Amino acid sequence: MSSNPGQISPLRPVTRHITGHNDAGRAVIHSTTPGNWQSFEESAMAFNVVYTSQFPADLNNEADIKQHEQVEQKGQLGLVNPGGTVCRIVDFAPNNHAVVHRTQSLDYGVVLEGEIEMILEDSEPVIMKRGDVAVQRATMHGWRNPSETEWARLLFVLQDCQKLSVGGKELGEDLGVATGVLAPSGN
């Protein structure tokens, strides 16, 4: 098991390095912190929110850092940051139960470790391998680690999007079985 507090998977711990500028305008490290993990589905998956930002980001006077710290302190972040972005790492236990859901967002999902099965409503599941990228466009979807023994890790960047209508029907966030477990995004 990991020695990183809160991390449930045996995968390598994650460290976040935030950069900034000194008074002379030169690049420096602002802060370095270990991942902050939150367990879900009886430890079948864990979320680590790396960073949040409004879009476009305001980097002046560390406004983005202050905004991110406020989001963390409130503890009410849904899957999507309304009017902004979220960078999140998710670890999936072997043979986890897929939580099928829809976010009102445009997401990039990158497989960092292991393999993951992307499940959609009317398509055959797709096995994604390390380095593969999903561009998830506000669809009902789920993620399942098909391995019986190995953990999988994905990096997600979610960005709020305009309301989506298909066939005259507005499609919004749908947390599925995670309703009441995950905070709604409110976008």
Rank of each mutant, 00 (worst) to 15 (best):
A98G: 02
N96M: 08
N81V: 01
C87M: 11
N81Q: 14
G83I: 07
L77W: 10
H101G: 05
K74S: 15
V86C: 04
S105D: 07
A98T: 04
V86R: 04
R102Y: 03
G84P: 11
L106C: 04
A98M: 04
F92D: 01
P94K: 11
G75V: 11
R102W: 06
D91N: 13
T85S: 12
I89G: 01
K74T: 12
H97C: 03
R102A: 02
L77H: 06
L77F: 08
Q104F: 00
A93E: 10
C87V: 13
N96F: 12
G83Q: 12
D107M: 03
V99S: 04
F92M: 09
D91G: 13
R88L: 13
N95M: 14
L106R: 12
Q76V: 14
R88V: 13
C87I: 12
N95I: 03
P94D: 09
F92P: 03
N95K: 15
G78I: 03
Q76I: 14
L79W: 05
R102M: 00
R102G: 00
I89R: 02
N95D: 15
H97I: 02
I89N: 03
R88A: 09
F92C: 06
K74R: 15
H97M: 08
V86W: 00
V80R: 13
Q104Y: 01
R88Q: 08
C87F: 09
S105H: 08
K74M: 14
V100E: 05
G78S: 06
G83P: 09
D107W: 04
G78Y: 07
F92W: 12
L79D: 02
N96T: 08
G75Y: 08
L106S: 09
V86T: 11
Q76N: 14
G78R: 07
R88T: 07
L106N: 14
P94W: 11
H97E: 15
T85P: 00
V86Y: 07
A98N: 00
K74V: 06
G83V: 10
G83C: 12
A98E: 07
R102V: 01
V99D: 00
T103N: 10
Q104V: 01
L77I: 11
L79A: 14
I89S: 01
H101C: 00
G84Y: 08
P94M: 10
G84A: 11
N96Q: 08
G84H: 11
K74G: 06
K74W: 01
L79G: 15
R102C: 01
N96K: 10
Y108I: 15
H101D: 01
T85L: 12
Y108L: 15
T103L: 02
L77M: 03
L77K: 04
A93T: 06
R88C: 12
T85Y: 02
N95G: 09
T103K: 03
R88W: 04
V99I: 11
P94R: 12
R88I: 12
T85H: 02
T103W: 01
V100L: 15
P82W: 07
G84S: 08
G78K: 08
Y108P: 02
H97T: 14
A93L: 10
H97S: 12
P82N: 06
V90M: 13
G75N: 03
A98H: 09
C87K: 02
V100F: 07
H97G: 00
Y108E: 05
L77D: 07
